[in-house]
Computed example of a mutant assay.
Amino acid sequence: MTATERTAPDQELMDPAAVDDIEWAVRLLAATPTHEGRDRELLRQWARRADEFGSRLAPVPSTARVVERDDGLERMLLARYTSRPPTVELYTDTLTLAEELVDARGWRAWYPPGSVRAAALAHEAVHARLHHGPEKAALKQALDHTVLRLGRHRVAGHVAGAEEVAAHAYARTVCGLGRSPLLLTAALRAALTRPGREN
């Protein structure tokens, strides 16, 4: 990372948009259990590959049933996919807060009206695809993380958090967003954990 890419922590808290999308993906991976102490450049490489993978996935409508709930703020969730039965839970209170944050921060050009909901659904649709389809193995191959090599044979390993990065990149691409939903997720996390906030 060069000095020009670095931002002061106080500036990031005030303006999370000062951090680029790949750096938010690196931070997501770094905060994921099993990545403690991993080389930051390796995390950046995985973040880029997962982002590229997600942005290249062909758009496919979700077939999961959608259930709206209103307890996302206390759970710190915007949406969640569960596989049995295939369901996307959308947390309307968190969606409302996300829309308020977009307006308050002047990010409407990046996240047009209705796009937060659309991005949440698209994001969870990728989790369904990665859970049920061949894309899970394809993502492993794209990440190029080898956990075992026997002669010319190798076993590709799972990279915890990479599916999240890919799902955010897919949502950004298919919804035509100006920035990754990772930025909005970071802003939501900061808003929900700020001292004095009542949940």
Rank of each mutant, 00 (worst) to 15 (best):
Ala30Cys: 11
Ala50Trp: 04
Arg49Gln: 13
Ile22Cys: 03
Glu52Gln: 12
Arg49Leu: 04
Ala18Gln: 06
Glu23Lys: 12
Glu41Pro: 08
Gln45Pro: 11
Val26Ser: 01
Glu41Phe: 15
Glu36Phe: 10
Val19Trp: 00
Met14Ser: 14
Arg38Thr: 13
Leu42Cys: 04
Leu28Cys: 11
His35Val: 03
Thr32Asn: 06
Thr32Leu: 00
Pro16Glu: 11
Leu43Asp: 08
Arg48Asp: 12
Leu28Lys: 12
Asp51Asn: 13
Ala30Tyr: 10
Asp51Leu: 09
Thr32Lys: 05
Ala25Cys: 06
Glu52Phe: 04
Leu42Asp: 13
Pro16Arg: 11
Ala25Tyr: 03
Thr34Gln: 05
Pro33Glu: 10
Asp15Asn: 11
Leu42Ser: 13
Asp51Phe: 15
Pro16Ser: 01
Trp46Ala: 11
Arg27Pro: 07
Glu23Arg: 05
Gln45Trp: 10
Thr34Phe: 03
Trp46Val: 00
Leu43Asn: 08
Leu28Ile: 08
Met14Asn: 14
Trp46Ser: 09
Glu36Arg: 14
Gln45Cys: 15
Arg48Gly: 02
Trp46Pro: 09
Asp20Ser: 04
Asp15Ile: 12
Leu28Ser: 02
Gly37Phe: 02
Arg44Asp: 00
Leu42Asn: 08
Arg49Val: 04
Glu41Arg: 15
Thr34Leu: 05
Pro16Asn: 09
Asp20Pro: 12
Leu29Val: 05
Val19Ala: 02
Glu41Leu: 15
Glu52Cys: 06
Glu36Tyr: 14
Trp46Asn: 10
Arg48Val: 13
Met14Gln: 15
Thr32His: 09
Arg44Pro: 04
Glu52Met: 07
Asp39Met: 00
Asp20Lys: 07
Ala25His: 12
Leu28Val: 09
Asp15Pro: 10
His35Ser: 02
Asp51Ala: 09
Pro33Trp: 03
Val19Asn: 02
Ala18Pro: 04
Ala47Gln: 09
Ala31Cys: 02
Arg38Gln: 06
Arg27Met: 12
Ala47Val: 03
Pro16Val: 06
Ala25Phe: 05
Trp24Tyr: 14
Leu28Thr: 04
Arg44Leu: 12
Ile22His: 06
Arg38Tyr: 00
Ala47Tyr: 04
Gln45Leu: 15
Leu13Phe: 07
Arg44Val: 12
Asp15Phe: 14
Glu52Gly: 12
Arg40Lys: 13
Arg48Thr: 13
His35Ile: 10
Gly37Gln: 10
Ile22Gln: 12
Ala18Gly: 05
Gly37Asn: 08
Ile22Pro: 03
Met14Tyr: 03
Arg38Ser: 14
Val19Arg: 05
Ala31Asp: 13
Ala17Lys: 01
Arg49Cys: 00
Leu42Ile: 14
Asp39His: 00
Leu13Trp: 05
Trp46Gly: 08
Val19Ser: 09
Arg48Phe: 02
Val26Glu: 00
Trp24Thr: 05
Ala47Asn: 01
Leu42Lys: 12
Ile22Trp: 05
Pro33His: 02
Asp15Gly: 01
His35Lys: 10
Ala50Asn: 05
Ala18Ile: 07
Thr32Tyr: 04
Asp39Gly: 06
Leu28Asp: 02
Arg38His: 14
